[in-house]
């Protein structure tokens, strides 16, 4: 019965948080982008295209952070069998995939005028594309498992195994000579001028709030779907039982 208590308490909290996170995330993101757009001067070499950084970098971080969250939730699901773990892992997949996609598309659009090419098969770009494919595979798998009503344990194992790609993306620019530049922001260090850095961090905050709101909304949708389905199935069973009882009599 403790399995029911947790989702109920979660729903009480989620009802409070979903809308503020969604709306607040959109507002903070919009404000951060306007700030960056108006205050950022052209970069020494990249000119105006540096503005793409304000969406490219948050998208990249959230794409990678999303799979990290899936991996942690999968671990919690496999070890502690927490009833919300599988739902939260599933809820992160779609926003994670969208941000990985936005990272790739904005990066490609940025690469054309700066590097002189839309795409190269270097370590960073290739491993990021692999991440997008992992998301798509994960979404297809979890949807199929939910449709058949099977256990989500296979998806959790997929989530854990796929996590090996996240440190590879992170380290790709260090391990291999790549066309993509090395990390600009590392622990306590930044090679980004403050005039770009502060709007950038505000944009990261805005996109993260939005991500959180989407995850809450997805969790509520998945929970509601599961509950509605379980209730309908119980009713169908009861009706069937009543019919067989009548037939026996």
């Amino acid at each position: 019965m403790h399995g029911y208590a947790n989702p109920a308490r979660f729903l009480k909290i989620a009802r409070w948080f979903t809308m503020p996170l969604l709306v607040g995330g959109l507002l903070v993101t919009a404000a951060a982008l306007v700030w960056g757009w108006t205050s950022a001067p052209p970069d020494r070499l990249m000119g105006d295209s540096v503005k793409i950084l304000f969406i490219h970098l948050p998208a990249a971080w959230l794409g990678m952070g999303g799979w990290t969250a899936i991996a942690i939730a999968s671990l919690v699901e496999l070890v502690w069998r927490h009833p919300l773990a599988a739902i939260s892992a599933r809820a992160v997949a779609v926003p994670g995939a969208v941000f990985a996609f936005l990272c790739l598309v904005t990066g490609s659009i940025w690469g054309r005028p700066t590097w002189g090419t839309w795409w190269v098969w270097d370590g960073r770009l290739t491993s990021m594309l692999v991440l997008l494919f992992l998301y798509l595979g994960y979404i297809a798998l979890t949807n199929a498992l939910a449709r058949e009503g099977s256990s989500s344990r296979i998806a959790a194992i997929f989530g854990l195994v796929g996590a090996i790609n996240v440190p590879i993306i992170n380290r790709s620019v260090v391990w291999w000579n790549s066309l993509h530049q090395p990390a600009s922001i590392t622990m306590g260090n930044s090679a980004i001028d403050p005039v770009y850095l502060y709007p950038l961090l505000a944009s990261v905050l805005g996109f993260s709030l939005l991500f959180g709101g989407v995850v809450f909304a997805r969790m509520r949708a998945i929970l509601a779907d599961a509950q509605a389905e379980a209730r309908l199935r119980r009713k169908a069973q009861k009706a069937e039982l009543a019919q067989t009882a009548r037939g026996d009599a």
Binding site: L33, D48, S49, K51, I52, I55, H56, L102, V105, T106, I109, W110, R112, P113
Partner: peptide, 8 residues
């Protein structure tokens, strides 16, 4: 390119 990226 900036407009295209922001639009997407």
């Amino acid at each position: 390119f900036v407009y295209a990226a922001y639009a997407i």
